[in-house]
Design a protein around this nucleic acid. Structure first.
Ligand SMILES: [Mn+2]
Ligand SMILES: [Mn+2]
Ligand SMILES: [Zn+2]
Ligand SMILES: [Zn+2]
Lengths: 158, 158
DNA sequence: TCTTTTTTTGAAATATATTATCATTATCGC
DNA sequence: GCGATAATGATAATATATTTCAAAAAAAGA
């Protein structure tokens, strides 16, 4: 596969660090670093969207047509990245999970039920309260997810 | 279908009211009141669990074998009840939605990632904060869902 | 570098969840 | 009861996700 140019759009220090961490993680688990795994990570890094496995696959097929990346590899890699806490997934509404890079700071989601648009937010007070609730109920809290559904500003004007 | 005895386990005032409301809703929308719709509502009312369409279908087939209720009807009725805000659904982890009667007061969920057990809770402070966040971001809030994931007390002891 | 071992890949088959189609049956106002 | 309309169950179709497997690629070692 050495003839395929990856032609990365952006390679910030932050991304380089992420990639390095990923390589270390792979090595520690006797896994191999492949061009497929790299382009998936890179694509997640350069996307602001919340991507489905399907949409990620489409993007990759357009961007790297010679790679002929398979949908199974996208699913496998997203699972690996999620297990490794590098990406997080979001499942709401009807069908399918959506993935985003977890390297950005934790946040919750405001989802417009009209247009599907997603706004991100964090509230420290809520975050703290969640821990308190889990403690009180004898739960060892690992994670949480919270979605607020409503009509966004632009959809209200229609 | 008049030969089928429904043999309801419990018929509280609360349930009678729920049923009445459901009948009004159906009439207002030119929909018909059927025995299938009634037993699905009744089953949801008498269950403490968070039911999948599949598990609800199994329960109904055991309880009313002569009805030979179809899985498609279960899906259709759950969608209708959800659209009508009579039941709410919960989708987390991998596969499938889980439904519960929304007539009980609103609450959020603590989910054990080991055994799948679900604990319900409400926190007024968080509820209030969610509205404030939506307001601040110009969102007309309609609903929300929040899940805390962790290890329950009994799973921690194993 | 060449060789060997091990992992990963894409394609296709399979599994699972959900929805659509359609002929038949039930509901309900008259 | 009659007729108009809606709902049903069986089945097919679709969408989503996972498994299988032979071929290819990556890492390790010589
Ligand atoms: Mn997000
Ligand atoms: Mn609940
Ligand atoms: Zn919107
Ligand atoms: Zn548990």
């Amino acid at each position: 596969m050495s003839e395929i140019s990856t032609n990365f759009t952006e390679r910030t220090i932050e991304y380089e660090q992420l990639l390095l961490d990923f390589k270390v993680l792979l090595k520690n688990n006797n896994l191999k670093f492949t061009i497929q795994r790299e382009v998936i990570l890179e694509c997640l890094y350069n996307s602001d969207e919340h991507l489905t496995p399907e949409s990620l696959h489409n993007i990759l097929q357009n961007k790297y047509p010679d790679l002929k990346i398979g949908i199974a590899t996208v699913y496998r890699t997203l699972s690996l990245l999620e297990d490794s806490k590098i990406v997080t997934s979001l499942s709401f509404g009807a069908q399918g999970k959506k993935y985003e890079l977890g390297a950005k700071d934790h946040h919750d989601h405001l989802i417009c039920t009209e247009c599907g648009d997603i706004t991100e937010f964090v509230d420290d007070q809520i975050e703290k309260k969640q821990h308190q609730i889990a403690d009180k109920l004898g739960f060892k809290m690992l994670d949480h997810s919270m979605q607020i559904y409503g009509i966004c500003q632009s959809c209200q004007q229609k």
